[in-house]
Design a protein around this nucleic acid. Structure first.
Lengths: 340, 340
DNA sequence: CCAACGTCCGAAAACGTTTGCGTGTTGAAA
DNA sequence: TTTCAACACGCAAACGTTTTCGGACGTTGG
């Protein structure tokens, strides 16, 4: 076991000073050609690599960005991470991933931990608990210390920083309009209760689309699902007694549950009922029939967030503060669960 | 914007020395009671937190572990990360996640980067390209520098370190035996080319199960898929000309593709053909029919890996080296894609 | 022959900690 | 009054870098 090589050891070995070694390796003109050659050769031979920790301490920057997400076993978040990683790597940054598990305390803990020197900035999506408590002091504090933060997906007006979101309302409208355009006359929606912000927004989009197309809005065709664990049954009950020919589901899960129920009721998708989902995940792509869905473009969101953050990090400190909110457009991915 | 508080600033503010502050905060008996109180009060008021980078440099340990995986948009890997994160956090460690994107170069790059001070050890699953090249010098080098490494899932004998694997052979046997026990007479397999070690092992399990049950092994029923992006078509071709009543797929993707193809060929699952997959992901649970599958228990693997690594990290340096390989048992999850 | 200048290199500070040891002050014992 | 613990605190080194400054030496020009 050979421990890591340091400047000091090279210096001792070659009988020069530490600073000479450092300069030689950086090709400084201060150092004589032959000395440089000797040092470089030695360093290469023994594979010298500067210690990142020491560099971080000296430069007061770590070249790593922290990303805190509510959960990782979740297609959307992994695509976001993937997007962040990609541009971060391009720009020479590392990525630390932490999980809040939707817990406020874990979010605070992780943030505190990473804020003490481990990262130069954050990209994060708020934990469910945090949004319930409406307590964002940990974020404002970190921001006050001059650490850039980018919020994505689950954002909140109270925190003053860059943000990356999708337009849920427009996305939902696209979905419903597609149902309308492909001939659906009676369109239902499977959504969540209103305190889940994205559910609320998507419901709003659904209603707007109907209204703009002079479709009646029938409260009876709106199912707000409370208990995620029992959604299957609720959806079954709902569909049994509704005579719809189009259905918009605010997530993949609801969409596939619905298709299962419909099939059991002897109704075919998309012949009898067209179905559109939200979130373009593994399920949508591989389900049979594959799902027409509103894609959130997680990778692009991640990339945007990373750009925003890195811009802030590499900006001259005297430039004026300004916070952007970039909206990543959703797009409708047409597949087999709708007609045409 | 108020920059981070340091010991030095507290010292200046309170007109004591840096060391006094440090000791006071650690409740050292060297410092007088009243001085301690004063310093602690001040630190608490202004929310002093020691700088992790400085600590890392001083202690020569970072309390973070690096995990490098081939891809993150992949259910299995996310469950592993989740498992690692859980025990890492319990033990006061942070987790850095890096992606190799199945590229050898990126794997080397990430490893080099993190090895230079950023992490105390690694948990990783090899990139496909790395296994093809059979070049593991980057790993052996890191290990030689005294940095503990734990390999999981995609492991390799050439690298001498702790490992966490599942018993692919036994898992595959369980799957095939289940097909046999539910009455299948002619069983095919959808697998990967042999340099993907798990594919190879699962194929082996398939063959062993057949042999132990006195079933003939027909090479013609084995499809080794080379190009993941074109698997759909390959599988379709394969199934069109094989008269099987049981099918074992070495991953979810292949399983659902197969079911799609079968349906298009007018063959029902599980009535005409039973299908078993590998990896218990979102797809398996929600597909129609839901997939009987071999669960890899990724979370448990991650937890095991983390324990192994942290044990090594916190071991006294004089203890003898010894490398363990822990095998996480798979289990068969019975669902609708097989009979009974 | 001496001053001036170039070339090549080393010393030291700094980043923020921790910690072994030295030192000054106090009070009490002799 | 002298001496010596005990107490309370500061100094400085160390972790591995980078970088500014200045020094030593040799060469050149006047």
């Amino acid at each position: 076991m050979r421990p890591k090589l340091t400047l000091k050891q090279i210096a001792r070995e070659l009988d020069v000073s530490i600073s000479t070694v450092s300069k030689a390796l950086k090709d400084s003109p201060e150092i004589g050609e032959d000395t440089k050659q000797k040092i470089k050769a030695f360093a290469k031979l023994y594979n010298y690599k500067p210690n990142n920790i020491a560099l971080s301490l000296k430069n007061r920057k770590t070249k790593t960005i922290g990303i805190i997400i509510p959960e990782i076993v979740h297609y959307f978040f992994t695509t976001v991470i993937s997007g962040v990683e990609q541009v971060a790597n391009e720009k020479g940054y590392n990525v630390i991933v932490c999980l809040s598990n939707n817990s406020f305390d874990r979010e605070v803990l992780n943030l505190d931990l990473l804020a003490n020197g481990s990262t130069d900035g954050f990209i994060l999506s708020l934990a469910k608990e945090t949004m319930q408590k409406e307590d964002y002091h940990h974020l404002t504090e970190v921001i006050n210390q001059g650490m850039p933060v980018v919020l994505f997906d689950r954002v909140v007006d109270e925190v003053h920083c860059d943000k990356v979101i999708i337009d849920d309302i427009i996305g939902a409208k696209k979905a419903v309009e597609h149902l309308i355009n492909t001939g659906c006359k009676k369109i239902g929606i499977l959504t969540t209760v209103d305190y889940v912000s994205v559910g609320k927004l998507r419901t709003k989009g659904y209603i707007e689309a109907l209204e703009e197309n002079a479709y009646p809005v029938d409260e009876d065709l709106i199912l707000k699902i409370e208990d995620m664990d029992n959604s299957e049954k609720e959806i079954g009950e709902f569909l049994k007694t509704r005579d719809i020919d189009g259905l918009f589901a605010v997530n993949e899960q609801f969409a596939v549950s619905a298709i299962g129920s419909l099939r059991r009721l002897g109704r075919n998708v998309p012949e009898d009922v067209s179905v559109v989902g939200f979130t373009d995940g593994e399920l949508s792509k591989n389900f049979i029939p594959s799902l027409t869905t509103v894609s959130q473009h997680g990778t692009r969101m991640g990339a945007e967030a990373a750009h925003l953050l890195i811009d802030k990090l590499e900006r001259k400190p005297d430039e004026v503060e300004s916070y952007k909110t970039v909206i990543v457009e959703t797009s409708l991915v047409r597949r087999e669960s709708t007609k045409n």
